Amino acid sequence: MADPDPELMSIGAFARRAGLTASALRFYDDAGLLRPERVDPLSGYRFYSEPQLARALRVRQLREIGMPLPTIGRFFAASAAEAARLIDDQAARVAAEAHSAQQAAAALKASLGESACLTLCVLPGPVLAAAVDQVLAATAHDPEVPVLGGVRLEAGPDAVSLTATDRYRLATRTLVPSRPSAGSWAGTLAGDDLRAAASRLRRSHAVTLDAGEQTLGFRTADGTVIHCRVLTDVFPDHRLLMGSLPAVTHRVTVEAQQLLRALERAPAKLGLRVADGRPSVLLPDAAVDLDGAATGPDLTLWFELTTLYPAVSQALGNDVMLDVRGPDQPATVRSADDGDLTTLVMPCRTPTPDDKD
């Protein structure tokens, strides 16, 4: 065997540096993805160079997201934009496969307890889907507290409520069933399952809710059942939170679209002023008077645009009501139209000249 170049690494040494196995390197060589720098003609030993580590690491990363070998070959020949698209396509494929597996697992678990299934009520599909969208805005992805990504669904004789909170925001949507509920039920549904189900619920004029011990089934008009997992973690006590709020000191009632038009001109922070019984929005260059009513003494409180705008944009009906408790207490954004939507929003500190738009 000829003496190897001292700057080249054996396949074993290169494998350790790259976080791969020697057999994997042989496989990628045979697939044409990662050729050795040199192959000894007598022994067949493979040797690799230091610059090849970057490509080896990239191959490993692409395989970790499950990218097929032919696609990896295209990846290395692609432009940066095309390579990014290939990564996005693979991530979407993995997510779809994971969701399909979750749905299959949920359906399988549901089949184990079909005798315990309880039909709760029937809701209009588009209304239910809109309610899901509204409350999901208040969820959070927190690996340490996964239940904050869920939605609490509670069905009673006359109403169905959906509640979500990230402990900084809280949204509750109440729906009126087309006929009284057949029983009472409460559970926390996986937010990812609900998010994926919303588009299908929206296309069904009626959706029947079937509750099991481990899943909640949404049965569409064509008989399809969409299973949502019921989370076992304890959902935050939102009733305790609502019950512990200070008394309302001000109430502002305005037309939702007019308020939204004012917010669309706002920077990162905006003021809500109550003066002489009239509400207005404070912007850097102007105060926008609102056609509405306000109770309570003169007051100005400030909100982050990213906090107040979503709460108002999801409002039901034409009017929105803000219950204010002071400049440092949560305000409640309320609206109603065949049910109601309640969202807590937290004011922020008064902006300073150093704050940037």
Rank of each mutant, 00 (worst) to 15 (best):
M1C: 13
D3M: 15
D3R: 15
D5Q: 14
E7I: 13
M9A: 11
S10C: 13
A15H: 03
R16M: 02
R16W: 05
R16N: 07
A18N: 10
G19M: 02
L20R: 00
R26C: 08
F27S: 10
F27V: 07
R38Y: 09
V39T: 09
G44Y: 02
E50L: 14
P51T: 07
Q52A: 14
A54H: 12
E64W: 04
I65S: 00
L69Q: 08
I72C: 11
G73S: 09
R74G: 13
A77E: 14
A78Q: 05
A80G: 08
A80W: 02
R85W: 08
Q90E: 14
E97R: 15
A106Y: 03
S111W: 07
E114C: 04
C117Y: 04
L120V: 15
L123M: 07
G125C: 07
A131Q: 02
D133Y: 04
L136T: 13
D142L: 14
P143D: 13
L148G: 07
R152S: 12
L153D: 06
L153W: 11
E154D: 14
P157C: 05
L162F: 09
T165W: 02
R167V: 08
R167C: 08
R167L: 08
T174P: 04
L175V: 13
S178Y: 13
R179C: 08
T188P: 11
G191Y: 03
D192I: 05
A196V: 07
H205C: 15
H205D: 12
T208M: 11
L209I: 10
G212T: 00
Q214S: 06
T215N: 06
A221V: 11
I226K: 02
H227M: 15
C228K: 00
V234E: 13
M242D: 04
G243Q: 10
G243R: 06
S244A: 15
L245N: 12
T249E: 14
H250C: 07
V254G: 00
V254Y: 01
Q258F: 03
R261D: 06
R265T: 06
A266G: 08
P267H: 01
L272H: 01
G277A: 03
P279S: 03
V281M: 02
V281P: 04
L282E: 00
L283M: 01
D285W: 00
A287G: 14
D289P: 03
A294I: 00
A294Q: 04
G296E: 06
T300E: 06
T300G: 00
L301I: 09
L305Y: 09
T307L: 01
T307P: 00
L308G: 09
Y309R: 08
V312K: 03
V312I: 15
V312S: 02
L316C: 10
G317V: 12
N318G: 07
V324T: 02
Q329S: 08
A331C: 12
D338L: 10
D338T: 06
L341P: 09
V345R: 03
R349D: 10
R349E: 08
P353F: 05
D354N: 01
D355T: 02
